[in-house]
Design a protein around this nucleic acid. Structure first.
Lengths: 204, 204
DNA sequence: GTCTATAGCGGGATAGAC
DNA sequence: GTCTATCCCGCTATAGAC
């Protein structure tokens, strides 16, 4: 009876692709309809407005990016292994979703209220961070690692994992890297960052 | 005779502000004209098109961001001091221009060709990096630092400097930091990153 | 549910008077 | 140089036929 049995689903998938690669303001409902092989009116029929559709995609993307850290920090292992796990999990998530960091960072910078409106449950992130924080303090007291502010360490680790994805076109250009070589480099960074961090904090 | 003696200059300044905070696609010539206290037609009279005006701002911004690294890497000092100098210079530049990283990263991601078209003199960046690269290799041979791929080290340093600016709204939200406290934190990071990097690479 | 047609707006750009 | 008026396009959104 219908050409397209699950237009609703196709639209979401198209929206994910278009919004995440182009961002809210550059993406158009026409793009999304075309990508989904659907009439423009259908987009509004199922999702009412561009804004509403965007919110669904944004929330989903944000959770993807956050939850891969949460799992790792929560696990019951020693600090160094935990650091290794965080880095591995996070880079794996980024390799599978390379456009997410740009998308999230841009949209939040353009519209910081979105974060506060949609994610009232910030406490979760805060509590999980406290878990990591305690691990760090315990090791400091034991004397196995140097004194370091947990927030600084956390920022350093995230920075080294995410930034090479954000700045990928720039690095590729400056160093004349091909796409596949850059992929290998990102893969190798799991090990490199882990070693770098452990050397930075380990007492010797 | 004229209300506004140097509209041309006012327009550039307005364009800088509007483009850098909103990005190309969200910024409008109407925004820029308003910000410059000038009629919309004047924007086209002096700069022909939105695209053309944007290119001027983009090139200027890119050079600002790059040149602060070049100066430091080129100087004739020992590796550890050079690393310290790079980090200090770079974070100072970012504190003075906090919107630049988002602007550059976004626009290049949306339109990677822009980089290649406008900046044919990529060799400069490449050569200066080789300078740093040699310094690192020399110290490795001397045995004062651990073996590390210069590109990895370079990426790590840049990541830790820039990312906290890119992700400022997210970090402020998660950790409930106020604007002024976040400013202090960024200032402190000069020292923190320097120590972190030196500990990470120094043999002991 | 699906399509066509169209309303209604905001955008970039220019013609032409002064 | 400066301003008004206007063109024309592409966008979001909806009304209404099927």
């Amino acid at each position: 009876m219908e050409k397209n049995k699950d237009a609703e689903k196709d639209i979401i998938e198209a929206a994910r692709k278009v919004f995440i690669t182009k961002g809210f303001s550059s993406a158009t409902t026409r793009d999304i309809a075309k990508e989904a092989n659907v009439n423009i009116a259908m987009v509004h029929y199922y999702y009412r407005s561009k804004e509403n559709l965007f919110d669904i995609i944004f929330e989903e993307a944000f959770k993807t990016l956050i939850s891969s850290i949460l799992d790792a920090t929560n696990s019951n292992i020693a600090l160094f292994e935990k650091i290794e796990l965080i880095i591995h999990n996070y880079i794996n998530t980024l390799i599978s979703n390379p456009y997410l960091p740009n998308f999230i960072v841009n949209e939040i910078t353009q519209n910081p209220e979105r974060i506060e409106k949609k994610f009232k449950d910030k406490d979760i992130y805060n509590k999980v961070f406290k878990r990591l924080s305690e691990d760090i303090e315990n090791e400091t007291i034991k004397g196995t690692i140097r004194e370091i502010n947990p927030i600084s360490l956390f920022m350093n680790i995230l920075s080294m994992c995410i930034f090479p994805f954000l700045a990928k076109p720039i690095f590729k250009w400056v160093f004349e890297f091909g796409e596949s070589y850059y992929g290998e480099l990102l893969e190798e960074r799991k090990k490199i960052i882990t070693e770098f961090v452990i050397n930075a904090i380990k007492k010797c």
